Amino acid sequence: MQNMIGFPNMTQTLQVTGCHIGRFPPGWEYPRHHHHLFELLCCLGGEVVQEISRTSITLRDGDWLLLNAGVRHKTTNAAQEDYAFFNVHFDLDDLDIRRLLGATPYRLIPAHEAAQSGGLTRAFGELQALMQPTDGEEGSIGAATRLEDKLLLQANLLLIIRELLVLIRSQQSAGTEPERVTLFAADAAHAIEERLSTGLAEDVSVASVAKELNMSRSQCTKLFTKVYGLSPRQYVSRQKLMLAKEMLVTSYLPVAEIAQRLGFQSASHFSRQFRRWTGQSPTAFKPKHRGSDPEA
Score class of each variant (00 low, 15 high):
Ala267Cys: 14
Gly45Ser: 00
Leu95His: 08
Asp135Ala: 15
His289Lys: 05
Ser281Phe: 03
Leu40Val: 06
Thr198Gly: 07
Glu138Phe: 12
Ala189Arg: 03
His190Tyr: 10
Arg98His: 01
Thr145Asn: 06
Leu65Thr: 07
Gln15Leu: 12
Leu67Glu: 07
Trp277Tyr: 11
Asn3Gln: 09
Val88Gly: 01
Tyr83Gly: 07
Leu37Ile: 01
Ala78Gly: 04
Ser237Pro: 02
Leu241Lys: 14
Lys286Pro: 08
Gln234Tyr: 04
Glu39Gly: 11
Ser271Cys: 10
Gly199Glu: 06
Glu51Ala: 06
Gly142Tyr: 15
Lys288Asn: 07
Leu41His: 14
Phe274Trp: 05
Ile52Glu: 01
Gly18Glu: 10
Arg72Phe: 07
Arg261Gln: 15
Leu158Thr: 09
Ile52His: 04
Gly199Thr: 06
Leu92Phe: 10
Ala188Phe: 10
Asp63Glu: 00
Gln172Tyr: 12
Glu39Ala: 15
Leu41Pro: 00
Thr121Lys: 11
Asp82Ser: 12
Leu200Ala: 02
Ile192Asp: 05
Leu262Asp: 05
Pro8His: 03
His73Gln: 08
Leu108Asp: 00
His269Ser: 15
Ala189Gly: 06
Arg169Phe: 06
Arg162Lys: 15
Glu246Leu: 04
Leu66Arg: 03
Ala115Asn: 05
Asp293Cys: 13
Ala296Glu: 09
Arg23Val: 05
Asp94Gly: 09
Val88Glu: 00
Trp277Val: 02
Leu153Ile: 13
Leu167Met: 09
Ser231Ala: 01
Arg272Leu: 10
Gln260Ala: 12
Arg238Cys: 05
Leu223Asn: 07
Pro25Cys: 03
Leu147Lys: 08
Gly119Leu: 09
Ala244Ile: 02
Pro287Thr: 05
Glu148Ala: 07
Arg233Leu: 01
Ala186Val: 03
Gly142Leu: 11
Glu202Thr: 09
Lys74Met: 13
Ile141Arg: 13
Val209Met: 08
Gln132Val: 09
Leu14Asn: 12
Trp64Ser: 03
Lys240Met: 01
Lys286Leu: 08
Arg162Thr: 13
Gly229His: 02
Ala69Asp: 03
Ala259Ile: 03
Asn77Phe: 01
Asn68Arg: 13
